[in-house]
Nucleic acid binder design. Structure first.
Lengths: 153, 153
DNA sequence: AAAATTCGTCAAGCTGCTTGACCAAATAGT
DNA sequence: ACTATTTGGTCAAGCAGCTTGACGAATTTT
């Protein structure tokens, strides 16, 4: 016997489910990061940390990543410097630019965020089979636009 | 032979994938809504429409749904009224309150949004088996916090 | 009947973003 | 090599969307 609901019908509530799940994840990460003592940061800062971790980035690169103006990125960078998460180093190859890199505190915070994300997703992932998790990754990556993480709405 | 990657490792990029997919969905809906002629609205308004469609809602109910203050909800309602998407009716049971309901234009816009969402997700869903889509719905609904759609970050 | 709560608005203020103008350094054109 | 253009970053002003605070009117509680 065939199913009474087609794939089309199933699509109806997917938008809400997807957005709601994303929201739950962000809330979970935010709560976990705060619980680990980083109470002066908001989720928006996390999207900057993603770009700054590793080799660091310039103001322009950060702005492009966050899809905001250089002026706005500069303000956020100043805030993160003031709070001790980011350091401004002279750029090795361009005297105009300055390289933004995470301080030890900044790195500790990204670690806290990773832990919080893991903490949020693990209990949920354990209700799924490994194959389901793998399928989920495949499905999401097929819809996702690489590099565009930060919601702007 | 067992896999070299455990479930734990797979969890690493799930946060990015989930957020990126949500972003792609919102971008797709926004583009589709604009393409259908509703160029004076932004994604944020969609979250209000969700609550107003059907029987409508009061300012207080809208504020609670959007997780903003009544004053902010009132401002948004005024904007939507001014643009012709929402109407303020006297509340049938409470002389203090006013019922916000969608106008014909507002209803047409929600229909456009539904179409746009479908348009965004259908080609993607067709790359998946019906069973995969069903599994995805189950998985997402297990993570989602019901009612919390709107991102606040 | 009085007290307390709730609905919505007016007013003021803040935050995070924008646009516009500008200097300094780097790159491209001739 | 020298000029012209582009690029990196900041200063300044302004705006949009939110907040807190105070309030009158209608409702609900006691």
């Amino acid at each position: 016997m065939c199913q009474t609901l087609s794939v089309r019908d199933d699509l109806q509530d997917l938008p809400v489910l997807l957005l709601s799940a994303a929201r739950a994840l962000v809330d979970g990460i935010d709560a976990g990061v705060r619980a680990r003592g980083f109470t002066d940061l908001r989720p928006a800062h996390g999207f900057a940390f993603v770009r700054l971790s590793g080799t660091g980035a310039t103001i322009s690169e950060l702005a492009e990543h966050l899809e905001i103006t250089k002026q706005a990125a500069s303000q956020m960078a100043e805030e993160l410097v003031r709070k001790g998460y980011v350091e401004r180093l002279p750029h090795p190859a361009d005297a105009r630019a300055r390289l933004l890199v995470l301080t030890a505190r900044g790195i500790a915070c990204t670690r806290a965020a990773d832990e919080a994300a893991d903490e949020t997703l693990r209990p949920w992932a354990q209700t799924l089979s490994p194959a389901q998790v793998a399928a989920l990754r495949t499905a999401l990556s097929r819809l996702a636009t690489p590099g565009r993480i930060r919601p702007t709405w």
